[in-house]
């Protein structure tokens, strides 16, 4: 019996040691694990022009401009984290989820004039899952504009979902 509890304590001690080692390592490398930098971080400490970074934030409503330079589409838009904004220039086709108010991650470099030249733009999805009809209803009634910030709490529109899904008496097996 003493052998068993000795083994148990040994295992517990090893797990504590391993756990704290992992925690310290992750803490030390925290800045490398972070997937993207926020615009305010880029403003505060601009990275060297030759270093590729990832810039993450929300697309500012009304800031998206599309130009055509020699047949290839050029997109210009501002990305913000609420404190600072960085203009992003991206040549190419944007992902499906790209829209104003959406969170995006752009991969590229900061050019000397302060704009961000992106080689790749990824759309970041948030944790809100909402049926199409509900989103349209919220927008129509003016409760939420997806271009400005996050969707309201699910509890506030869940009753709406239930009544909306019940409205077509026969369950439509997705015509779209």
């Amino acid at each position: 019996m003493t052998r068993k509890s000795r083994r148990l304590w040994l295992v517990v001690a090893c797990m504590i040691g391993l756990g704290s080692a992992a925690a310290l390592t992750l803490n030390a490398f925290s800045s490398n694990i972070v997937f993207f930098m926020a615009p305010s971080q880029v403003h505060a400490k601009p990275p060297p022009a030759d270093r590729t970074i990832r810039l993450g934030g929300m697309v500012v409503a009304g800031s998206v401009r599309r130009e055509k330079v020699k047949d290839s589409p050029v997109n210009l838009f501002d990305v913000t984290d609420g404190q600072a904004a960085v203009t992003v220039r991206y040549e190419g086709i944007l992902p499906d989820l790209f829209r104003e108010g959406q969170s995006v991650v752009a991969v590229g470099t900061v050019s000397p004039d302060g704009t961000f030249r992106a080689s790749e733009v990824l759309a970041k999805h948030d944790e809100t899952y909402m049926p199409k009809e509900v989103a349209e209803e919220l927008r129509r009634s003016g409760k939420w504009d997806p271009r400005f910030g996050k969707a309201p709490d699910a509890a506030s529109w869940n009753t709406m979902t239930a009544s909306d899904t019940k409205k077509p008496a026969t369950p439509t097996p997705d015509g779209n």
């Binding site: 925290s30 972070v34 509890a155």
Partner: peptide, 24 residues
Amino acid sequence: QWWNTLHQPDSITVTGAPTMSTSM
């Protein structure tokens, strides 16, 4: 939660209300 990731945060948490429609 600890780092900003491309992957979205959990929609269903122990403490908070789910950020997902009940129909889903």
